[in-house]
């Protein structure tokens, strides 16, 4: 069918919608001002933010060894034909073919990391990264990826497990970072809920409930680290004891370090 085949009466009826009144000048002006205010407040994601967050923190010998091992591994891979693919994958979004490569490199990175604090940093960074991907999908009006949601859930859980092994001194700081991430998750999901009052994807609703539970857990942990350790011990019956470990001598790093993705995230501890 082409333009000439449409019933002229129907065409005329459709054309009745062409009559659009001139925009209200005031509304038009205000709309542009609002838009420009948004433009001025843009906060582009910086890939170097995690690096800058670590500035001033000297690397120990062990960290250097780990770094060296990681760099060597990366070089070996880069020399292979996969190098270009891995590089290209870093910008991949959940629906992209290379997304699996991106999350795999993240997983390798976390496996190579032996320092518990660095490992925790990675988990939090990856959670932030997943959050940004989900936010971008929502902003583009796309369906939220189940994969990104599942990974966000996994990174958060791993971060909590890692935190439960820390001494009380460092635990509060870690919990506050996780709290910040969880609050952002709730904010984004709530905004999405407002835009879809009939309910978003079931995965998202389920995730929202889980995030709320975790936020309560984290808040209780900030008040009393022992309660947090105890609850984490109950939630993870496969873990021995209450999971408390010295931050330096943690032998359990292998367990929590086997499944995580990761390259350094865009935004470090906070999105914008």
């Amino acid at each position: 069918m082409n333009n000439h085949e449409i019933n002229p009466k129907l065409k005329k009826m459709l054309e009745s919608l062409q009559d659009v009144p001139i925009r209200d000048l005031q509304a038009s002006h205000t709309g542009r001002e609002d838009y420009m205010a948004q433009v001025k407040s843009l906060n582009p994601r910086r890939s170097a933010s995690r690096k800058s967050a670590r500035q001033g923190k000297p690397l120990g010998r062990r960290a250097w060894v780990t770094r060296f091992a990681a760099i060597t591994a990366v070089i070996v891979v880069a020399l292979s034909s996969l190098g270009g693919t891995i590089y290209a994958a870093q910008a991949a979004q959940p629906d992209d073919l290379l997304y699996g490569v991106k999350t795999l490199t993240e997983e390798i990175q976390v496996t190579l990391e032996s320092d518990p604090e660095e490992k925790l940093d990675l988990y939090i960074s990856f959670a932030n990264r997943r959050l940004q991907e989900i936010q971008a999908q929502m902003a583009a009006g796309e369906e939220v990826s189940d994969k990104a949601l599942a990974l966000l859930e996994k990174h958060t859980q791993k971060a909590l497990e890692q935190t439960a092994k820390m001494e009380s001194q460092g635990m509060e700081k870690a919990l506050r970072q996780i709290e910040n991430n969880l609050q952002k998750q709730i904010q984004i999901m709530t905004e999405h809920g407002k835009e879809h009052p009939q309910g978003g994807p079931p995965g998202l609703l389920k995730a929202q409930e889980k995030v709320q539970e975790r936020l309560e857990l984290v808040e209780s942990g900030i008040k009393d680290p022992n309660i947090f350790r105890e609850k984490m011990g109950k939630d993870n019956p496969h873990k021995q004891g209450n999971g408390v470990q010295d931050g330096r001598g943690n032998p359990d790093g292998g367990q929590s370090g086997t499944e995580n993705p990761g390259n350094s995230p865009g935004n470090g501890s906070s999105g914008k």
Binding site: Y35, N43, R45, A91, Q135, A136, A139, A140, G141
Partner: peptide, 10 residues
């Protein structure tokens, strides 16, 4: 939404 997408590299 356009600006948010740009902000997040999309």
């Amino acid at each position: 939404r356009f600006l948010t997408a740009l902000e997040h590299g999309g």
